[in-house]
Design a protein around this nucleic acid. Structure first.
Lengths: 64, 64
DNA sequence: AACCAATGACAAACACGCTTTACATAACGG
DNA sequence: CCGTTATGTAAAGCGTGTTTGTCATTGGTT
C-alpha cells in the first residue's frame, strides 16, 4: 500500500525520527512503513492521520 | 476501536457471511472485527470502506 | 419437535506489525 | 579528517490479524 509519508514529512521538515516521536513508535517502524515494507495497523494509521491533520484516505493510497 | 459494521450490515440486510464474502475474508474475521475483538489491517479497512462506499473515518471511530 | 440460518466464541497454526539492537551508508559542519 | 544527523536494512522476539475447524445458542420455519 503506497503512501505519501515522505512528502508530508518533507513539507513539514520532519525527520523520520521526528515523526516517530510524535507517533510514539520506533524510527524503524516509520521507515518500514514509508518504504512500503509493511502497512501500519489501523490504530496507527489513525494516529498518522491525526499528526498530519489529514484523512487516512489522503495519506494512504488504494492503488497496489 | 469501535466501528459501525453491524449497523451498516443491517441497513443493507447483509449477514456476516455476506459481508465476509464481499470482502474475501472469513466469517470469523468479520465477526471478530464487528464484536471488537481486534482491528482489521489497513488494507482490509480500505476494502471495508469500499464495500460500503464510505470513508474509513465514517466506519471506524477514533474513540476508545 | 426437528431443522436451518445467523451469530458469538474458542483453539491451533501461520503471517504480519512493531519493538530493540545493531550495522552501513551518505551528507554536512567543525 | 572527525563527529553528527538522516536514512536504509537486518535479526530476534512478542503481540496481533487471519485462517480453518468446531461448538453452543438463538430465532424462524415446517
Amino acid at each position: 500500500m503506497k503512501n505519501r509519508l515522505k512528502v508530508l514529512r518533507a513539507e513539514r521538515d520532519w525527520s523520520q525520527q521526528d515523526l516517530a516521536t510524535r507517533l510514539e513508535v520506533s524510527r524503524q517502524s516509520v521507515n518500514a512503513i514509508e518504504t512500503g515494507r509493511y502497512d501500519p495497523s489501523l490504530p496507527l494509521a489513525f494516529r498518522i492521520a491525526d499528526v498530519f491533520g489529514l484523512a487516512i484516505e489522503d495519506i494512504f493510497l488504494r492503488g497496489e
